[in-house]
Structure formats: C-alpha cells, structure tokens
C-alpha cells in the first residue's frame, strides 16, 4: 500500500503516523501541502494546528494546493484518514458532515480516552470487533462534534459512526469520536490511534487500524 502523509505548516503528528505506517511495511512518504498530485492509495491528514488554526480549525488548510484534487481522488475510491486536525479539515472540506466545536468545558484535553468500536465493517476498522473497547489518546481543544438532528439520524441509520466515546470528554453529540463517509473511504476521528502503536509508548490498541488498511492491499 502506498501511503502519503500530508504536511501542512503547523502539522505536528505527521511523523508519528509516518513511523507507524513505515514500521508496518507500508510504502509511505510525506506529501508537502504545496504539491499537486495525490498518487497514493491512502492519504493521511495528520493532527496538529494547520495554518495556526486561524479563523476556524481546518478552514485554511482546505485551500491548500494538495487538497485541490481531493474530491476527484475520493470520488475515484481513494482512501483518506483524517486524525484530529485532519478530521476538522475533512468537515471543512465537506467530505464529512458536521463540525467540531470548542470542547464543552472550554479546556484543551490531553489524556487517555476509552472508545467503543461502533462499526467494524469498514476499511479502517476491520481488525477490531464491534463493541470492543480501545484506548486511543485525545489531545484537542475543539473536538466537540456537532451535527444537526437530521444529519445525526442519517449517520446512525447508515452506520457511519465508527468510534464512540465511552465517557464523553468534550460534549460531542451521540458520543461521536469518529465517522466515515457514506461511500466508506473517508474516516475522520479526533482520537490518535498513532499514539497507541508501541508498547514503549503505553499500548498498541492503535496498531490494528493501520494494519487493517495495509492488509487490505495485499
């Protein structure tokens, strides 16, 4: 599997994702935001504070050169995973519905976080079991998922919610931590699976997410 980790000015989880993918045997490279060709099977929008999160998180990254071709790429079945700031960018791009608001208690939260896998039948979550609990850390100030009632109903109906918080830390509606698009090739999530991919760093719950994607291409 060819993977590309987009590097925006202000990205800070790019090398974490890169290392995990590389270690698992993916053909991975960094893609600078000023490049114009997405020539990979999996595009990663990493965490961080792209363009300083000016105006709104993800609002400016949406106009970067590399993302001009993302609608065609997704339309043609290319896979995208947006983690944390990447999730915020995906909602600003309207590739995923809803928006991420300031955390309910206004604090930046950096801590372990227990999630429940709500949908194990996706390209991304196939090595997990529905109902299984995993620990992926969170580190965000704006992770409070909001969508209107109708959108939430649709997300539930289509089984588009992939991860839910067990103890909702930020006020997200329906405990949403990660959602997928209808087509099933774009995942956005606030928690960081790449930060739980080594026992030296506290655990390996996150590894299966990346392994699952890589194995799909074998």
């Amino acid at each position: 599997m060819k993977a590309g980790v987009v590097v925006f000015p202000g990205s800070n989880c790019d090398s974490d994702v890169y290392s995990v993918l590389k270690e698992l045997g993916a053909d991975v490279k960094y893609i600078w935001h000023g490049e114009d060709k997405i020539d990979v099977d999996l595009l990663v929008l990493p965490g961080g504070f792209s363009y300083g999160d000016y105006l709104r998180c993800g609002a400016i990254a949406r106009f970067s050169k590399i993302l001009e071709g993302i609608y065609d790429y997704v339309e043609n079945g290319g896979y995208v995973i947006g983690i944390c700031n990447g999730f915020q960018i995906l909602t600003e791009l309207k590739l995923l519905p809803g928006a991420l608001l300031k955390n309910m208690d206004l604090k930046f939260i950096c801590s372990d976080c227990i999630l429940e896998v709500s949908n194990d039948n996706t390209f991304f979550s196939r090595l997990y079991k529905k109902g299984e609990r995993v620990n992926f850390p969170i580190a965000h100030g704006e992770g409070n998922y909001y969508a209107d009632d109708e959108t939430l109903k649709e997300l539930e109906r289509n089984n588009q919610i992939v991860f839910r918080y067990v103890n909702n830390p930020n006020g997200s509606r329906n405990d949403i931590a990660g959602i997928i698009n209808k087509k099933g090739n774009v995942l956005g999530m606030m928690p960081h699976p790449e930060r739980r991919a080594s026992s030296l760093l506290g655990g390996t719950d996150g590894i299966r997410l990346f392994k699952g994607m890589i194995e799909s291409f074998k």
């Binding site: 105006l55 709104r56 609002a59 519905p97 809803g98 909001y146 969508a147």
Partner: peptide, 8 residues
Amino acid sequence: KLLINPEI
C-alpha cells in the same frame, strides 16, 4: 465560502 461555517 470561507468566513463562516454555515453548519454552525
């Protein structure tokens, strides 16, 4: 197009 997010 940019200054607001009409969702919120």
